[in-house]
């Protein structure tokens, strides 16, 4: 039981980072990034290709993450421009549809060019005991990276001028403009950060199991569930929801089966929304 719970936390931390990337972009500009998981997989495949061609894993992973971050910035500056000109519901729907299309394109390209490519990052050495459970080194490194990324992100948002500006745009965009903050510039930077986070998730997942080129849709779905349960726009909410859902998912997958566990996950999400329509820590 402890072993399953610990595995759940490992997965939950990855879910958390996945949800945070989605929730930030949604909170800032109303874009539901339905290509988030596909962007993550793209980072994994770029990394895998580089490793195949002889790059050291650390360098390859770094390039993979940066590449997807740049993709995020480019998408924000091009495809999302007409979306930001819309208001309210129109903006959400148009953004959702365009990003769905981006997801299809990435999926299609990966399946066409690299159908059997997979990223698997292994660590040499014996398992390390944690609370009496022998944990694989990959799981521990993945969790350490997730925790570090989450911690750095929270600190940046809380204590830096740019982080404060980011939160101000989420809370009141007009107020932010009146303070001299350019919401468009904040959105562009954060879309890049969100892309980097997606890439980081793929890298950490690859430390626990192989990431294959068709994993995108699943990752997007999990990220979306986490972001909604945590409360769209809330970073701490996404972390909390990620860990809870990771544990729920792993326990149910272990005792019942992985197909049922996804249904349970959706049920947990739906229940949360019925009880707390704005999510666990939703703002607004």
């Amino acid at each position: 039981m402890t072993a399953v719970a610990l595995d759940g936390i490992v997965l939950g931390l990855q879910f958390g980072i996945l949800g945070v990337g989605l929730t930030l972009v949604y909170g800032l500009g109303g874009i539901v990034n339905l290509a988030h998981g596909q962007m993550a997989v793209l980072a994994a495949i770029v990394t895998a290709r580089l490793i195949d061609s002889g790059s050291p894993a650390v360098v390859a992973a770094f390039v993979g993450v940066v590449a997807v971050s740049v993709l995020g910035v480019v998408l924000d500056l091009t495809l999302m421009r007409p979306v930001y000109r819309q208001q309210g519901e129109h903006r959400v729907l148009l953004g959702l549809l365009l990003m769905l299309g981006v997801g299809f394109v990435i999926d299609g390209l990966l399946e066409w060019r690299y159908p059997i490519e997979a990223l698997s990052l292994r660590f040499q050495g014996d398992p390390i005991p944690v609370l009496g459970v022998a944990m694989r080194r990959g799981s521990l490194v993945a969790s350490a990276i997730s925790v570090a990324a989450g911690g750095v992100l929270v600190m940046l948002l809380r204590w830096t001028t740019f982080g404060r500006a980011t939160r101000s745009v989420i809370q009141d965009e007009t107020g932010a403009r009146l303070c001299g903050i350019n919401p468009a510039a904040v959105r562009t930077v954060v879309f890049g950060v969100s892309g980097a986070l997606a890439g980081l998730v793929a890298i950490t997942v690859a430390m626990t199991r192989p990431v294959v080129s068709t994993d995108g849709v699943n990752l997007t779905t999990f990220g979306l569930i986490v972001a909604v349960v945590g409360g769209l726009g809330s970073v701490p909410g996404a972390f909390l929801a990620g860990i809870i859902l990771g544990v729920v998912n792993t326990i149910s997958a272990f005792y019942i089966g992985s197909y049922v566990s996804t249904i349970l996950l959706l049920l947990a999400a739906a229940t949360t929304l019925l009880l707390r329509p704005r999510g666990l820590l939703g703002i607004g």
């Binding site: 001028t161 939160r167 932010a176 703002i283």
Partner: peptide, 19 residues
């Protein structure tokens, strides 16, 4: 007013001085 409701008084004032 368009204040930032989930931030403290101090943080709101900090943002006034942005950047």
């Amino acid at each position: 007013r368009h204040l930032f409701p989930h931030m403290s008084v101090r943080e709101n004032l900090f943002l006034g001085a942005y950047p």
